[in-house]
Design a protein around this nucleic acid. Structure first.
Length: 323
DNA sequence: AAAGCTACCCGCCAAT
DNA sequence: TGATTGGCGGGTAGCT
């Protein structure tokens, strides 16, 4: 599913980051940073980042963002990113919504950071789709937009053409995810390294990560944390169900509901994520890492690694080390 | 590299 | 009566 385009066209991809009165500066800066740091196979910039505003200058957290490009230019972009809004009751400029709809219809990817999901929802882009936003605002998003399937327990949601992310820092995870989709795992690892940022945070494919949420997120959380601490051990549905004090059938059902995937897949992702971490930060051999994260054999690790990240453990380590 | 085998996991349904 | 549970069957994904 991950597109690893080793023969990307020379033309850089165009990313438009939108600004408007009340835009959250951190959310705005994150996509600008991440995409402008990514480089293509030839070493040149992989993206052209364009800051587009509803006006040439907008107000943001007490200061102004100026010299913004017109919104109309965002329609031409391949990816449009909508940062968060400081106040959910702030009226959204109709032209902002119209621009998003237009860009979407032309095939652009639309992504939001934090409460930017409210803008996407207002434009109708989230209807019938899974989406996330800052956990404090998740209930409100669901209330205002009943047709949106809100998931407060993930860092981001990738629905293909429309992506949403949780609180500000999760915007970094989302942007790195997009870089990986576009350019492959090695390029994303290089950006992550520049930003001193783990490529993927604990738990695996981020849309499946259990949010270390302040609110309770179900009876499974302790079991998941325990598995995370004992990845090297063998795990089965039977043993986990027992630990959760449920029948196997109920355990699998709860798992689907609360985590969004199946136990085996989640564990595989967790193992891969841990392997990535070890490749980045340790000198252990691939064999040793395979054992440390609970894969029965190094070949299994290599297979799964390639399935999910489109690259090999060695190549991943090299890319990360060399940037 | 192929095959055999295990475990997963989801639809189905009877029993709370 | 509607919702939830958990046992079963078996196609299949993935491990050895």
């Amino acid at each position: 599913m991950t597109t690893v385009d080793g023969f990307a066209p020379a033309a850089p991809r165009r990313v438009a980051v939108l600004a408007f009165d009340g835009v959250v500066p951190f959310d705005f800066a994150v996509p600008c940073e991440v995409f402008s740091r990514a480089s293509g196979p030839d070493g040149g910039p992989a993206y052209v980042v364009l800051a587009c505003g509803t006006a040439p200058e907008v107000q943001s957290a007490g200061f102004g963002l100026s010299r913004l490009a017109p919104l109309a230019e965002a329609v031409e972009a391949d990816t449009v990113v909508v940062p968060g809004v400081d106040d959910l009751d702030r009226p959204l400029p109709p032209v902002l919504l119209a621009t998003l709809v237009d860009a979407h219809q032309r095939g652009a990817r639309i992504a939001s950071v934090c409460t930017g999901a409210f803008v996407l929802a207002a434009a109708g882009l989230l209807d019938g789709r899974r989406a996330t936003t800052h956990w404090l605002a998740a209930a409100e998003l669901a209330r205002r937009h009943p047709r949106v399937e809100v998931d407060a327990d993930v860092l981001y949601v990738d629905e293909g053409a429309v992506l949403t992310s949780a609180g500000a820092a999760a915007g970094i995870d989302l942007c790195l995810h997009l870089v990986r989709r576009d350019l492959g795992a090695a390029a994303a690892a290089a950006v992550a390294r520049l930003s001193v940022m783990p490529l993927e945070r604990a738990g695996g494919q981020a849309q499946f990560i259990v949010h270390p949420a302040p609110q309770e997120s179900g009876a499974l959380t302790p079991v998941l944390e325990w598995v995370g601490r004992h990845l090297e051990r063998p795990h089965s549905v039977r043993s986990l169900a027992r630990r959760a004090a449920m029948s196997e059938r109920t355990f699998v059902r709860r798992f689907r509901e609360q985590v969004g995937t199946t136990p085996a897949r989640w564990i595989a992702r967790a193992r891969i994520a841990r392997a990535q971490q070890l490749l980045e930060t340790s000198a252990l051999s691939v064999d040793e890492i395979a054992e440390a994260v609970g894969f029965g054999a190094a070949s299994t690790l290599r297979d799964r690694f390639h399935d999910h990240l489109g690259t090999s453990p060695q190549a991943y380590r090299r890319a990360f080390r060399e940037g």
